[in-house]
């Protein structure tokens, strides 16, 4: 059986009592890249992931993994590895015991279990009760479980939670390496900053639907909006020269000016011709977080977001 490394979510609607958790959620996860699934708590990220895994039934819409419903996949963990909740462990069962039953359920051997234990760096604690694990160790165990079947698709819900800085760097590198090998990766987070340097694509959601579905490069370019940052000691001369050329100039107060309306090469040429000294001219850089805030500034959905998590 050939299953493509994609997740397609189309028109999902789901209501929990009076709360509308999903309101027409639609997006696609492509192979070979890390897709960030971003939105505030309660935006419907976890519910969408549960629907993808066939755990929750949507009122409307479909979620397909490689073109098929998850439930119809033979040995599903060999196609899609998932980590929904790192705390979902029987506390008195050892890490190895936890991985062993999962492996057997997929027709995998104990050898594969020992392999992922070794690779997840859990060899020293594999026979200890999982109940005594720190959140970071549980996240590692959860990732090891998701990787048991060496799946084409990996889906992780808030994997950065509880990780120390070293763990966050490791997780980002791990996600990137998966994408490089052609896997499709869907990673949810309520903090855009966590996805800096790892996500290639983001699906931004709020109130149960997609607000933006955009590549990270395009998102950053849109947020930069062609602006140029200029560092100069001769602020007033520079403003006069650039204003005469038709650019809008704002002072940032830290000795830099933001210039919009002119490309960087033209700014350099104008300043050089007028002999205005400057130490730096560069394209304006925004963080993913800033781009996210720009993007969502006008989205009504993000204002007065209900505090309640939509999931039960």
């Amino acid at each position: 059986m050939t299953v493509e490394a994609t997740i397609e979510v189309a028109g999902l609607r789901k209501r929990f009592g009076s709360a509308l958790a999903l309101d027409g959620m639609s997006f696609t996860v492509q192979p070979g890249q890390v897709t960030g699934f971003v939105g505030p708590n309660g935006a419907g990220k976890s519910t969408t992931m549960r629907v993808i895994l066939g755990l929750d039934a949507p009122d409307e819409g479909d979620a397909l993994v490689g073109g098929r419903p998850y439930q119809s996949l033979p040995h599903p963990m060999r196609y899609l590895g998932s980590l929904l909740d790192a705390g979902a462990l029987q506390p008195s069962r050892s890490a190895r015991g936890h991985l062993l039953w999962l492996a057997y359920s997929q027709g995998l051997s104990a050898k594969r279990v020992d392999q992922v234990i070794e690779e997840a760096g859990l060899a020293d604690v594999a026979r200890r009760r999982a109940g005594g694990f720190s959140l970071g160790m549980r996240q590692r165990l959860g990732v090891a479980a998701a990787m048991l079947g060496d799946p084409l698709i990996l889906m992780l819900d808030e994997p950065f939670n509880g990780l120390d800085p070293e763990g966050i760097v490791w997780m980002k590198g791990f996600l990137r390496s998966l994408a490089r090998r052609g896997r499709a990766v869907l990673v949810s987070s309520h903090l855009m900053s966590e996805l800096e340097d790892s996500a290639d694509h983001v699906v931004v959601v709020g109130r149960g639907k997609v607000v933006a579905d955009i590549s990270v490069a395009a998102l950053l370019a849109a947020a930069a909006d062609g602006r140029v940052t200029l560092r100069t000691a001769a602020v007033s001369e520079a403003v006069i020269v650039l204003d005469r050329a038709g650019a809008a100039v704002t002072a940032n107060g830290d000795g830099t000016l933001t210039v919009s309306g002119l490309p960087a090469e033209r700014v350099v040429m104008l300043l050089s011709r007028s002999e205005v000294p400057f130490s730096e001219v560069s394209g304006h850089r925004v963080t993913l977080e800033q781009a996210y805030l720009d993007l969502t500034r006008d989205a009504v959905e993000f204002r007065a977001e209900p505090a309640t998590e939509a999931a039960p």
Partner: peptide, 27 residues
Amino acid sequence: MSGALLAARHPDPRPGRVSFAQSLRAE
């Protein structure tokens, strides 16, 4: 670790659905 988890893309030795015997063994 990051690369190692992916080191061996192993073929499915027992294709097909999760058999009842596998479910039993897991439980």
